[in-house]
Design a protein around this nucleic acid. Structure first.
Lengths: 199, 199
DNA sequence: AAATGCATGTAACGCGTTACATGATTTT
DNA sequence: AAAATCATGTAACGCGTTACATGCATTT
């Protein structure tokens, strides 16, 4: 969002070093490879591909298909590789933090324990699923053909694993504490009218 | 950044439940309390306080000081508390992920092992410092007066602890692997001309 | 004398998401 | 017949950062 100059064009260049691709493919590839630590929308991808092409960082050619719409296939140029190298040589800036779940939890005294529990629970489910997918990807990387990128892909995947495992451990702890709070809450007369027994 | 409606005004309201404050104070408080999972710039804080006041979510009064500029002290209203409660009852949306360090690592085959090492190392130093600060805050929370918010503040702090510890473990592993790669790199003739001994 | 801290604010700028448009084919 | 998939694109909108403006007091 800021003056810290977007890396969108550079991600695209990076992915095009693996293989020439269309904008559509780039979108799919982003989701399925770097998806757990990076995302781009098509509203961002297509205009940036145009800009890359206009500046000679990529070449484009149209591929006709029968039955399906034409595809514009982009491939990285020497100039593009140079730009990518320059970007890679720049130290990544620390992220500006923004975690809305933690924010709502921080103000938890103003909220209902039930909703907080639900938020943490949902987050754990979601991240558990991502963790499983990363483990799957890891196995595929290990079993599949070795590319020059392979060791680096594993490092990135490993980050996801460790971080998500930490999140899940935290969620477990936190759900326990929230439960205790909710129990006290109920005891002290905040009970909601609710049926017990067969509904 | 998106259509997912900003939470800036709601953070401000949340903090004002603790104590009436000026915009300046809010900036400082954000940095020192929720800083590791949320940030707001003054270019965001001041206009949003105005909007909150214009809509009756907060009251403002000017406090004269000698020697220093006047302060506008904001306090939350009943209507403001209502808005905050509504926001808290909305499930937080999963973050769109953006980690530039991982992105550069993912494209590591196109970069120099030395710079990657530096990036990971710096990140570890930075996060190590944050971890120490969180531990410090945790101790202060535990030792200090108990507020209604206390248990929730600890949950948030605990999240930071677990996540950052995971990051540091990962950094250690990863630095080891990068070192191995760099060694191989040097062996296979990528050695840089460099002086040994007294420079 | 210059820089820093306190304190409030506005303006520029651009990034990024969502929504919309188009149109053929295949699946339900 | 309707919906989904493939595929490329544009436009609107607003969030959020940076930079700038102001001005007094204290510290270096």
């Amino acid at each position: 969002m800021p003056r810290r100059s977007s890396s969108t064009m550079d991600v695209l260049l990076g992915l095009l070093t693996i293989e020439p691709m269309s904008g559509y493919d780039l979108g799919l590839t982003i989701r399925s490879s770097v998806g757990f630590f990076w995302s781009e929308s098509y509203g961002q991808i297509y205009p940036n591909l145009k800009k890359l092409a206009a500046n000679g960082f990529v070449n484009a050619k149209t591929e006709r298909q029968k039955g399906k719409p034409d595809r514009r296939i982009y491939s990285i140029t020497g100039k593009g590789r140079e730009r990518l190298a320059n970007w890679l040589a720049l130290e990544p800036q620390p992220e500006i933090p923004r975690n809305e779940l933690l924010l709502k939890l921080f103000f938890g005294a103003q909220a209902s324990p039930e909703s907080l529990t639900q938020y943490v629970d949902r987050m754990a489910q979601r991240e558990g699923a991502v963790l499983a997918r990363i483990a799957q990807v890891e196995r595929e990387i290990a079993a599949g053909k070795q590319y020059p990128g392979t060791p680096y892909w594993r490092m990135a995947a490993r980050f996801g694993q460790l971080e998500l495992e930490a999140h899940l451990r935290w969620a477990k702890q936190t759900l326990g504490e929230l439960r205790k709070i909710a129990d006290k809450h109920r005891q002290s007369g905040h009970r909601k009218a609710k049926h017990h027994g067969n509904q």
